[in-house]
C-alpha cells in the first residue's frame, strides 16, 4: 500500500493505493488517525484501492467513528467497484459517508 496526502484548509485528502488487508491496516491507521486527532476533516480517496478485506473495512469503521467522536467528518470518495461490493456486503453503505 502506498499513500499521498494533500491539504486544503481544514480538510486533508488521503489517497490510498494498492490492496488493503490485515498486513496493511496499521499503515493506513498511522496515516488517517493523526489527521482526525488533529481536528481535520478527512477525504479518503479509494479510487486506486482494488481490494479490501474485513481488516480494511474495520479501518473505515474505526476512522468514521473516530471522526464522529472528534466532531470532524470522514468522507470516503471514488470507491472502486470491487471495494464498494465489500462495503455493501458489510451493509455499511448507509453508515459510512460515501461520495
Amino acid at each position: 500500500m502506498t499513500y499521498k496526502v494533500t491539504d486544503e484548509g481544514d480538510t486533508s485528502t488521503v489517497f490510498l493505493d494498492g490492496e488493503i488487508d490485515m498486513d496493511k491496516t496499521e499503515g493506513a491507521k498511522e496515516v488517517i488517525f493523526p489527521l482526525i486527532d488533529a481536528g481535520k476533516n478527512v477525504n479518503l480517496n479509494l479510487s486506486n484501492v482494488q481490494y479490501m478485506d474485513s481488516s480494511g473495512i474495520s479501518v473505515l469503521i474505526e476512522s468514521h467513528q473516530k471522526a464522529l467522536e472528534k466532531g470532524t467528518k470522514l468522507i470516503i470518495k471514488d470507491v472502486s467497484k470491487s471495494v464498494l461490493k465489500v462495503i455493501m456486503m458489510a451493509k455499511l453503505e448507509q453508515i459510512l459517508n460515501l461520495e
Binding site: D53, S54, I61
Partner: peptide, 17 residues
Amino acid sequence: AIDDVKPGGLGTFFIQE
C-alpha cells in the same frame, strides 16, 4: 451482529455470505 457497527468480526460473515 451485522447491525452492531464496530470494527472487527466481519471475516466470518463474509465467508458465510
